[in-house]
Simulated assay, not measured.
Amino acid sequence: MSRTVIFDVDGTLVDTNYHHTVAWFRAFRRHDVTVPGWRIHRAIGMGGDRLVAAVAGERVEQDLGDAVRDSWKELFDPMLDEIVPFDGAREAVAEAKRLGCRVALASSGKPDHVRHYLDLLNLDGLADDWTSSQDVSDSKPAPDLLRVALERVGGGTAILIGDSIWDCKAAEEFGVPCAALLTGGTSAAELTGAGAVAVFETLAELREGLRPLVSGPAA
């Protein structure tokens, strides 16, 4: 197969979404802004360049956006040692390679965070290339990361594996299907409503169902 499987990383391959939620909550509080945790969690998956305005409004973005993002990184970095891969993460990526697909990782995370996750996942020889926030100026739900990831592995047709409605929206904008996992904490109904062509509870289930996704007409 000449298709590419593009994997999101945070919330899809590594269990980070709730760590991100707590770090953003604390970052806002550091600057005397209180945003409910549920609202932050629902925005996890979009890039930090968009999240501040999305959850706290344009005025907070204008006045404090960069300061909040700096605080978020300072607060999240100590949590890196707590991050673990989801069960079956490496095996799901390996299955995509076994099926003859190229594999790209499309992360909007900080480069040092993504490198840390790659080490945790032990994807040497499996991932053909990867992206981080430094590769684009506009993050998810914009499709730029997907475009860069696909270009880096040679183009062609693709399917995105993600965990958030922002992944689904980015895939729709880019014109590729998105299969979604419940690992990010978003319901199956919301993921399907956002355009997911399939929803899986675990990466083991995804691995079992990957062949028709990469060989069928939707891909």
Rank of each mutant, 00 (worst) to 15 (best):
S2V: 13
I6M: 11
D10T: 01
G11M: 13
T12M: 01
D15E: 07
D15Y: 03
N17W: 12
T21S: 12
V22G: 04
A23N: 00
A23D: 04
A23Y: 04
R26V: 09
F28T: 05
R29N: 13
D32K: 14
V33M: 03
T34L: 14
W38T: 06
W38I: 05
R39E: 07
R39Q: 10
H41N: 01
H41A: 04
H41Y: 07
H41C: 01
A43D: 04
I44G: 06
G45V: 00
G48E: 04
R50M: 12
L51N: 02
V52H: 02
V55A: 07
V60R: 04
E61Y: 09
L64I: 10
L64E: 09
V68H: 11
R69M: 02
R69A: 00
D70E: 15
S71A: 15
L75Q: 06
P78S: 15
L80H: 11
L80F: 04
E82R: 11
I83S: 08
P85F: 14
G88K: 03
A89N: 00
E91Y: 06
E91W: 10
E91V: 08
E95Y: 11
E95A: 14
E95Q: 13
E95F: 12
E95T: 15
A96N: 09
K97H: 11
G100F: 09
R102C: 10
A104K: 12
K110I: 02
P111V: 07
D112Q: 10
V114A: 00
V114T: 00
V114F: 00
H116K: 13
Y117D: 07
Y117W: 11
Y117R: 02
L126Y: 08
L126V: 01
A127K: 01
A142Q: 02
P143K: 00
D144A: 09
L146N: 00
V148P: 10
L150K: 08
G155W: 08
G155M: 06
G155N: 04
T157D: 14
T157S: 12
D163Q: 02
S164V: 07
I165D: 09
A170E: 03
E173F: 06
V176Q: 04
G184N: 10
G185P: 15
S187A: 05
A189N: 09
T192F: 03
G195H: 08
A198C: 00
V199L: 05
F200K: 15
A204Y: 04
A204R: 06
L206N: 03
E208P: 05
G209R: 06
R211Y: 09
P212N: 11
V214H: 12
S215V: 08
G216R: 03
